[in-house]
Computed example of a mutant assay.
Amino acid sequence: MEIERKFTVRQLPEDLARYDSHLIEQGYLNTNPVVRVRREDNTYYLTYKGKGLMAREEYNLPLNEQAYNHLVSKADGNIITKRRYLIPLPPYTIELDVFMEPFAPLIIAEVEFPTEKEAEAFIPPEWFLEDVTYNPEYHNSTLSTKKF
């Protein structure tokens, strides 16, 4: 089960380069239910996500590079590329996604939680702006269908 909240960002934290980060590329084979393939640096996987906005089922299966390349070529819509920064906010980690073209300058902060109760009690840091957890327009699967 994935339990997360999503936020737009008022301003970027200073010196982002000091945080660990990953280059992510992903394509969607289906958006209802969500079936996606992702490359995160040199790791590849297929993900299934169930229905829901803050909490939903999520299953990841490993892929090799050849399988990823084969499947991503079959993706519908936009391929999403972003740099994900991992920013500690004990006991949590902020996953700050800085999207590349054609989605730039979109920046989304996500925080995952072990329980819905913790997610609902979370008080975001000052540099977060709008809580978009319940706005499906900010789901990557929705972005993959956006027309430019």
Rank of each mutant, 00 (worst) to 15 (best):
N64E: 14
A55D: 12
R39A: 06
D20C: 11
G77N: 10
L23D: 13
E118I: 00
P62E: 14
L71E: 02
Y138Q: 07
T81M: 03
F99R: 10
L53Y: 00
T31F: 01
V132T: 01
Y44M: 07
T142C: 05
A109S: 04
L16Y: 02
N42Q: 13
A75E: 13
V34N: 05
I94C: 01
E101V: 02
K49R: 06
G27N: 11
G52E: 05
L143N: 14
L143P: 12
N32P: 06
E126K: 11
R10A: 10
D41N: 14
Q66M: 13
T133Y: 06
V35I: 08
I123H: 00
F148T: 10
S21V: 09
A121R: 14
W127S: 00
R83G: 00
N30R: 15
S73C: 13
I108P: 07
K147M: 15
T93K: 12
R10T: 11
S21K: 15
Y19M: 12
M100P: 10
T142D: 08
K51W: 14
Y19S: 09
A55N: 11
L16G: 10
V9Y: 03
F122S: 13
A67H: 09
E2P: 11
I94E: 01
I80K: 00
Y92C: 01
L106M: 14
Q66G: 09
T8G: 00
Y28N: 00
K6P: 08
V72L: 05
G50I: 02
